[in-house]
Design a protein around this nucleic acid. Structure first.
Lengths: 189, 189
DNA sequence: ACCACAAACGGTCCGACGGTCCATTTCTCT
DNA sequence: AGAGAAATGGACCGTCGGACCGTTTGTGGT
């Protein structure tokens, strides 16, 4: 046997506890000790299982990331393969935007721990790469790789949270702005 | 007399020390204790003068912010008032971009302490407001207020540092991408 | 020149945090 | 049931931002 039963149970308990804490309306500081306590487990158990707090957070979103990646890679069009490039780009933007809205607290935590690590994260790299691909497919005569980073940065959870809570922008307005950003093309002058 | 001489001297020493530390190529963690030690002063002196670390950092960039704001408000065109809207927008973007490059460590420190605080900062609000104004003046048929936030977010120091150091994008490429971002208009379909 | 007092000072202390250590407990296989 | 490996968790550590407070220092009035 590769894993002891209690270890598996505890692992799940920790993931559930972290998820629950981050899911709250205002999570406040989601600390290692709080997660451990909520899971009814010692801090060391959390760390041994996930390496560090960053690893735990990544483990919490991992299934959600995988689900979205599946939809993108093998789901039905236009989010999955197939369909007109224009529609694929917009469907992808919507999916990404919803993903950030759904997991904003989690993502903010990731963004906060060493920003480089957030962009370097395999999941982020996938989102950005796919974004660039779809921008290119939509034939935008621009530096698609840079624009992909710019658009991805525009959907950072901290930015969106700020625009919503402090600037009172509706999600629809932000979403619309995002689509415009990705639809823009240089003036033909 | 409103201020004692030694207080003034120490205040300057602290500002110089902080500036020097942040100015280094790789500042590493610029900590309260390190700033105090470099300035030859106790930590309490730093805190009493500036409230907290955030206040100190803001005090360090304040003169640079003021200088750029002066150039924007009362300098010669196209950065200052006057000139064609198109040129004014580009000159402003260049100035803002250079400003971030020059002060990236300082700005990253600000971004890192509660992202909301960074955007809410009066200086940031000025940059964003002016950006929206110039976007509107250039007659972009878009949500200028949102686009201003998006562009401002694209010149976050953490993002630019990442693109340069990890993605090996040249500053010229980033700068060009930025100009394109602000020059784009929706396709006329 | 001196003195008294407010202003400024800085070393020490505190609480919170992420992470490590290791003596003890608990599972699982035979 | 028993042995040994696996897992555990509370105590511990280093670091950080910030508060406290007894001591020192500048300054304006005499």
């Amino acid at each position: 046997m590769s894993q002891r039963a209690d270890a598996i149970r505890n692992r799940a308990a920790v993931l559930d506890a972290a998820e629950a804490l981050f899911r709250q309306d205002d999570p406040g500081p989601v600390t290692l000790a709080r997660i451990a306590e909520t899971a009814g487990v010692g801090k060391a158990t959390v760390l041994r299982r996930f390496g560090d707090l960053g690893g735990l957070i990544e483990a919490v979103i991992a299934p959600k990331v995988a689900a979205l990646q599946d939809a993108v890679r093998t789901g039905g069009p236009p989010l999955g393969p197939g369909g007109p490039p224009e529609a694929r780009l917009h469907a992808y933007l919507d999916a990404l935007f919803d993903f950030v809205l759904d997991n904003h607290a989690l993502i903010r935590a990731l963004e906060h721990r060493r920003p480089h690590a957030y962009y370097a994260n395999p999941a982020s790299q996938f989102w950005i790469g796919e974004l660039a691909r779809r921008l290119r497919a939509a034939h935008r005569p621009v530096d698609a790789d840079y624009l992909a980073y710019a658009v991805f940065t525009a959907i950072r959870a901290d930015v969106i949270d700020y625009l919503r809570s402090e600037q009172h922008m509706s999600t629809d307005r932000i979403r619309a702005g995002l689509h415009v950003l990705a639809t823009l093309s240089p003036p033909g002058r």
